[in-house]
Design a binder for these strands. Structure first.
Lengths: 229, 229
DNA sequence: TTGGGCCATATCGTATACAATCTGAGCCTA
DNA sequence: TAGGCTCAGATTGTATACGATATGGCCCAA
């Protein structure tokens, strides 16, 4: 928790955003406890506001709140992880198709700048920021498709994906989606709906393949936790 | 607001459920104001708890909270309404397919009982309850498909659909989904994945057709509201 | 009469006080 | 020494007090 920025007073929304970024950047690990007054001290607000932020993050699936226990950064199970990517596979190809039919020159330029920003972050070795931008790329596609509901939804799924990547990413392979993203941008430029849809399908499959979502238990668990119940 | 039941103390979750049911049953109309201490009086809890419930409903898209103005039952716009059904069309056929492959005899029996309960409600002329059950039928399919994430998601979309139906339903046609639901149950019994998927696709299209989602303005609006801004 | 400004009241927003609950250390006992 | 009990401290849960903001009525002036 001590790695959070902005020690000045903030709104619940701002706190939620900052916590989300910290989770995205893996500065807050899955399972980390978020004590209310600790967070409140950092942001200089009362627990009331912190509570709002934490509940909001719970609704988005980033935080788990246990009654009388507290709030923790969510630890998606294997099943939840698979479900997130299944849901994305149902939604995103259709968004890519719609975006291809609607994308303007500005949209294409925006996505290109977005990819450049991601590359810059990688060059600076800011892996967390690059991951965040990479996820946001997908949300931007829903925005271009002008589908507000799914844009919101996808924002939540992408945020959860960041947690999943933190837990299940096979470190041995590089998480590179540059080629797919480039392909999508090109398809948008050409208004190639079929192409965009296919690339997105393949891209999500690629992502899945780079995760270790086989039956292995959910990773290192403390003995104490493992023996509980 | 005076039509709500259970005047004894309750948790935020219970309040949210009761409000949801009231919205489903159209006892609370889109746009209705939900004053915090009024709700608190009804349920015999402090505003703290009411606030939790209202925020939770906001996240689910059933309530709109305007800062310093208060909470209102959401009034989905035409675009939002279309988006809800588009999202459902992306998700539910796949759920129907998965459910067909997984449904047990118990699941089929459960759905049959569910349909019977809906019919009973209709016979008792409890239209609101029948609508609620009809929506829940779809959520149950996601449960049978064993897809928890989408089950939750669909619960929200179905709840919003109830609002949309309240606003955009063409009264002239009967909102009958009995045939489609029956077809789905049969497909589940036969493990007919393709059939289930197709029926669900068509069923959602049917639903859309029975709504008036053309460009007409969002219905009766007070003059004052219309001239604002 | 009509338009604008002012104030009382209603209502929401936030902080804080207090109650309920959990946790873990220390102690006792078998 | 292992197991369980008790209690203090830490932490979350809820109610309430108080401040901020919006609303609507009233008065006054043009």
């Amino acid at each position: 928790m001590s790695v959070i920025l902005k020690p000045k007073t903030a709104t619940a929304e701002e706190i939620a955003v900052q916590l989300t970024e910290a989770i995205h950047a893996h500065r807050l690990q899955p399972g980390a406890k978020l004590r209310e007054d600790e967070v409140g001290d950092v942001f200089q607000v009362s627990r009331t506001i912190v509570r709002q932020a934490l509940h909001s993050l719970q609704h988005k699936g980033l935080v788990t709140i246990l009654r009388n226990k507290g709030a923790f950064v969510a630890k998606p199970t294997l099943k939840e992880a698979r479900e997130v990517f299944e849901a994305r596979s149902l939604i995103e190809p259709a968004m890519a198709r719609a975006a291809a039919l609607r994308a303007t020159a500005q949209d294409v330029a925006f996505l290109e700048a977005h990819m450049q920003a991601e590359q810059d972050a990688l060059d600076r070795e800011e892996v967390g920021e690059a991951l965040r931008l990479s996820g946001d790329f997908h949300v931007q596609i829903a925005r271009i498709a002008d589908h507000t509901l799914i844009e919101t939804l996808l924002g939540q799924l992408v945020a959860r994906s960041a947690l999943i990547i933190a837990l299940y990413w096979r470190r041995r392979s590089a998480l590179s989606d540059k080629a797919s993203h480039m392909g999508l941008v090109n398809a948008f430029r050409d208004a190639d709906a079929d192409g965009a849809e296919e690339i997105m399908k393949g891209h999500l499959l690629d992502l899945l393949m780079q995760l270790d979502l086989r039956d292995s238990p959910s990773g290192p668990v403390s003995l104490k936790e493992a023996l509980k119940k």
